[in-house]
Amino acid sequence: MLIWGWRQYAQRLAVLTLVCGRCGNPAAHVLHKLVTKFTLFFVPLIPLSTKHSLQCTWCGAESNLAQQQATELLDRAQAENAQAWQQPADPSWQGQPPRNY
């Protein structure tokens, strides 16, 4: 008896703030990657297909993306995240330790 099949693995790659094409709201959009793999005895062996999608958290609209579009959005999200870490959260802090009174 040979047990084979396929299984899908979903992975959240990034969360971006974009204007939705369906509802027109500036809302968070989740970038997903869905990989379908061939399994043999419940062990994933060979990836059969990879799909990327972008889903609006406001209205739930989902759109499929090409590999290149997903890569560009992921690079954009990483750049925004790196820029956010470079700026202090409180501009009055200026790198000084808090005072203990």
Rank of each mutant, 00 (worst) to 15 (best):
Q68T: 14
H52I: 01
A10V: 07
L48T: 02
L13M: 14
L18G: 01
P97C: 13
A14I: 10
C59G: 12
V35N: 00
A82V: 10
S53N: 05
W58E: 15
A27N: 04
L40T: 01
K37Q: 10
A27C: 12
F38P: 11
L34Y: 02
E72D: 14
A61C: 10
A66P: 00
Y101N: 13
P26K: 08
I46S: 00
V35F: 00
A77H: 12
D75W: 13
P97V: 08
L48K: 04
T39D: 07
E72T: 14
L18A: 03
H29A: 01
L45K: 07
A66M: 04
R7G: 09
P97K: 12
Q11N: 15
M1Y: 13
Q8S: 15
V35S: 01
S63R: 13
K37M: 02
P98Y: 14
L2A: 13
L18F: 04
C59E: 15
P91N: 11
G21A: 05
A70S: 03
A70M: 04
V35H: 00
Q83W: 08
F41Y: 11
P47G: 07
Q87K: 15
A84H: 12
T39G: 02
G5K: 08
H32R: 03
V30L: 07
K33W: 00
F42P: 00
L74G: 01
Q78W: 06
G24M: 08
L45I: 10
W85V: 03
A70P: 01
R7A: 03
Q87E: 15
L13D: 04
C59Y: 09
A27T: 06
L31R: 03
H32N: 13
R76H: 11
C23H: 05
L31F: 03
R22H: 11
C56I: 15
C20P: 05
A89H: 13
F38T: 05
Q68R: 12
A79N: 10
T57S: 14
L40E: 02
T39F: 02
E80N: 04
Q67R: 12
Q86F: 07
W58I: 10
S49I: 02
P44M: 07
F38L: 15
A14W: 08
G5E: 10
S53E: 06
F38I: 03
Q55D: 03
C23K: 03
Q11W: 00
T57A: 00
P88T: 03
T71W: 14
T71M: 12
Q87N: 12
S49K: 14
H29M: 02
W85Y: 11
W85C: 05
W93M: 06
Q67T: 08
Q67C: 02
A66K: 08
E80S: 05
W6G: 12
L74T: 01
A61S: 06
R99H: 09
Q96Y: 08
Q94G: 03
N100C: 09
G24S: 09
G5S: 08
A77P: 06
A79W: 04
W6I: 05
C56H: 06
A77M: 12
T57D: 09
A79F: 05
I46K: 00
K51N: 13
A27K: 08
L16S: 11
C20I: 04
